[in-house]
């Protein structure tokens, strides 16, 4: 068995916010009819979280569920639990039209930490990040400069960003530049 490593192996940068690559994270893409009772039960059984509303995400311990599109959820879990999670979902949804795939190794996760986290994200994404518009419990799929990404707020001063693994270096360099000391804008 090969030794699994994350894209940038936990690299971090201390600017006016702290940018850290989060290492390995389990992620399961689940596509199917989100209104189906069977799917709802299977998801909450696996994650301990209810299927979230449109554009929302919810977390419980190491698990989390995020709404990605009208027929797609992203389930976050410990890296080692992803394969078992897929198996559990596949068993629970047998006979239904669905897809469950372990996409853990296709992604990279970053954590942005600091009081100006909203500002740093706003520099790179075409999203209204003011407190009234983007709130805790929301997940926004968008782009970080030229790379597709999704992010959410863990708390008022911490955000997590998911992007494709192949673009991890590009995204990290972008955050480094955006978080450089002296680059503060002070909008929010």
């Amino acid at each position: 068995m090969s030794n699994a490593v994350s894209a940038l192996q936990g690299v971090s940068y201390d600017g006016y916010v702290k940018v850290t690559e989060q290492g390995l994270r389990g992620m399961i893409t689940l596509r199917g009819d989100l209104a189906s009772a069977k799917l709802k039960t299977a998801v909450s059984k696996l994650s301990g979280v209810k299927v979230p509303a449109v554009n929302a995400c919810a977390f419980k311990g190491a698990y989390g569920v995020a709404w990605m599109s009208p027929d797609e959820l992203l389930i976050l879990c410990p890296y080692d639990a992803a394969e078992a999670g897929v198996a559990q979902l596949s068993k629970a949804l047998k006979g239904q039209h669905f897809l469950a795939a372990n996409v853990s190794d296709a992604r990279a996760v970053f954590q942005i930490e600091g009081a100006q986290v909203r500002e740093v994200l706003a520099k790179l994404a075409p999203v209204d990040l003011s407190e009234g518009a983007f709130q805790l419990g929301q997940l926004r799929r968008t782009r970080i400069a030229q790379a597709p990404a999704a992010f959410w707020l863990k708390d008022a001063g911490t955000a997590e960003v998911i992007c494709f693994r192949s673009q991890a270096d590009y995204v990290f360099e972008l955050f480094k530049r955006a978080a450089m000391p002296g680059a503060e804008v002070g909008v929010f």
């Binding site: 554009n55 599109s69 009208p70 075409p126 926004r140 968008t142």
Partner: peptide, 12 residues
Amino acid sequence: PYCGIDADETEL
């Protein structure tokens, strides 16, 4: 109309 987000041109 699916996610209700006001997306600008660069996201579309």
